[in-house]
Design a protein around this nucleic acid. Structure first.
Lengths: 338, 338
DNA sequence: CCATAATGGTTTAACGTTTGCGCAAAGGCA
DNA sequence: TGCCTTTGCGCAAACGTTAAACCATTATGG
């Protein structure tokens, strides 16, 4: 049996209450008493029982994170930021990676309700789709990350618009003028917004988009194929840079260009989106790309949830977190980071 | 305030005790009474408070998973299997993705102790390294997944040996005879074992390994470079197949071969290891690779932990779980799955 | 010197469950 | 009838902690 506060109190010769207060830094008592209790607690290896505390305080010091991202590409950075922000507040995070099966989601949601999580993070893969389940209003403070955020809810998403502008402007800054855009399915809001950012940044400088945005799947295959269709023609009618909607498309494009004997970044500069590090770094050449700040997003979501629980005023709505450009070699910049 | 069992009992006109027993299917009572209580509970939307139950039963119905895999490539499939196996037993899983910082690990470990997790899963990236922290003997049942397993502990790992044999035999079955092996750092036990499996499978058929195993980093770059060194010579002294130690090396190799004008699978068949799906599928051609059964590993770890907690006899030691070959196109097989 | 406040605690109740034990009523058996 | 068993349920304690209320003692202010 683990050691309880009762035994600490007994050994210290004080009441359980006093021991509790000594350890929590609350109440009034002789500094000497507090120290004695603490010394004995650590000597005995006492660990407060978070469950018992939870029962009386009506809090579990526990958050739940529900996601449908099976590969963990988005989930894990978010979860890492979340955990990290909560660690020193004593809050742990349940992770339920539940695919898109409504029944599974519901079961997980149930489990979290029974566990009395203090807060809920709904994390998705796209900003215009929510869970495959109507979230019952269970009174649990909730934030949404990269997932559709219901009316009056609180959401976090990357600022796709300025991310796209960042990438495009950088290409312009590198002297590129004929900048194309290859991206994912037009049904994705993110794809439409990024395309819009690309156009904005170009118009800003009096440049015209190089053709319409090429929508397609979010896959390498799409990038690879588009290399052929876009660069197959005579060299004079080719773009000198491409901003891609994600890193996979960018990589497919680069590989496709390689197959056509077109050099990156010499002939064509390429910028991706997502900064999926393990992937972007391995691209040849390493991929310049827009970082969505997922870890920071997780951190902020955690802090916001804490505020919400503490009853602090929290503004509803969607927060677009700043993105940043990670410059590697595919854009032709000098002195790029590896 | 959430609705408690007290209110259910009151509305059903029974004592709290009877209500509890009705809902848990324990005790003796009129079937009619049991049904009435249950109906009222669901009508009221009653959710048992897992915290209160945990306090009296001295269990939290909670596992902790500690990992140092930042990308989630291994962690998320394992976590998915774990959660899934535990869901219908009412157990949820805390995830702490803690890099390799000893202090962070210790903090997370502390948090889990205070949360009174019933079981602990230590998940790593390699089978010959454990946590950067000496695990205190806190009496919490623990299993290790893809991480060094202390004396007398319980561990799960892919069967690297037979996985490597599987891959190599498949290449032999495709008519390949000059089979090379490119893999990761020799300091990794997994690299040495896979190399051994490769040799075994060849000797089995009276074939000699094509040169020594080429150890290096676990990266695409290593595969890409080795394409040059291994295939740069005259065509007669080239392998006709390569078994790679992971999917990244395989992909690097394939890309490198492409750059040399060597066709996969026509000239050289390639098999990887890991079945990192999103990656293997996007390789051109799609990568035949060894699946480590990570999800199944998570599931088994969960079930084992449950047995351990229930006091059932569980044999100590490392369990090597079967791997399977996922045949795509890079090995030249007919009728391969996409 | 009295009223009041501060100090350093303790006592007691509470959080929402489960569970060992008790107990009345009904049934079975000789 | 008398005794034992079964049925159906309630009482009360327990899990480990926090927190509101209380209390005796000592210090403070006018």
């Amino acid at each position: 049996m683990r050691i309880t506060i009762r035994e600490v109190a007994a050994k210290a010769g004080v009441s359980v209450t006093t021991a509790s207060r000594a350890l929590n830094g609350s109440g009034r008592m002789l500094p000497e008493t507090r120290e004695r209790v603490r010394a004995i607690a650590s000597e005995l290896g006492y660990r407060p029982n978070s469950i018992a505390r939870g029962l009386v305080q009506q809090r579990s010091f526990t958050f739940g994170m529900l996601t449908n991202d099976t590969y963990g590409r988005f989930t894990l950075p978010v979860a890492a930021g979340l955990s990290e922000a909560l660690l020193d507040r004593g809050v742990s995070v349940f992770l339920a990676a539940g695919k898109d099966d409504p029944d599974l989601v519901r079961l997980n949601l149930n489990a979290m309700e029974e566990k009395r999580v203090d807060g809920l993070v709904i994390a998705g893969k796209r900003i215009d789709r929510g869970l495959p389940v109507e979230l019952p209003d269970n009174g649990i403070p909730t934030v949404h990350i990269m997932a559709a955020c219901p009316e009056g809810g609180i959401g976090f998403a990357p600022d796709d618009l300025s991310g796209a502008k960042l990438a495009t402007r950088h290409l312009i800054g590198q002297g590129r003028r004929r900048i194309a855009h290859i991206t994912g399915r037009e049904t994705f809001l993110a794809a439409r917004i990024r395309a819009e950012g690309w156009q904005h940044a170009l118009h800003e400088q009096g440049l015209a988009p190089f053709g319409p945005a090429v929508f397609g799947s979010w896959s390498e295959a799409h990038g690879f194929e588009t290399a052929r269709t876009m660069f197959g023609k005579n060299a004079s009618s080719r773009p000198d840079a491409v901003f891609c909607g994600n890193d996979q498309i960018a990589r497919g494009l680069i590989d496709g260009l390689g197959a056509l004997g077109i050099r990156v970044p010499d002939d064509v500069a390429v910028v991706g989106f997502d900064n999926w590090e393990i992937f972007a770094q391995a691209t040849r050449p390493p991929l310049t790309t827009v970082d969505m700040g997922l870890t920071e997003m997780g951190r902020q979501a955690g802090l916001t949830l804490l505020d919400l629980i503490d009853g602090k005023p929290v503004e509803a709505g969607l927060r677009h977190l700043p993105t940043s450009l990670v410059v590697r070699l595919s854009c032709g910049a000098e002195g790029a980071a590896q």
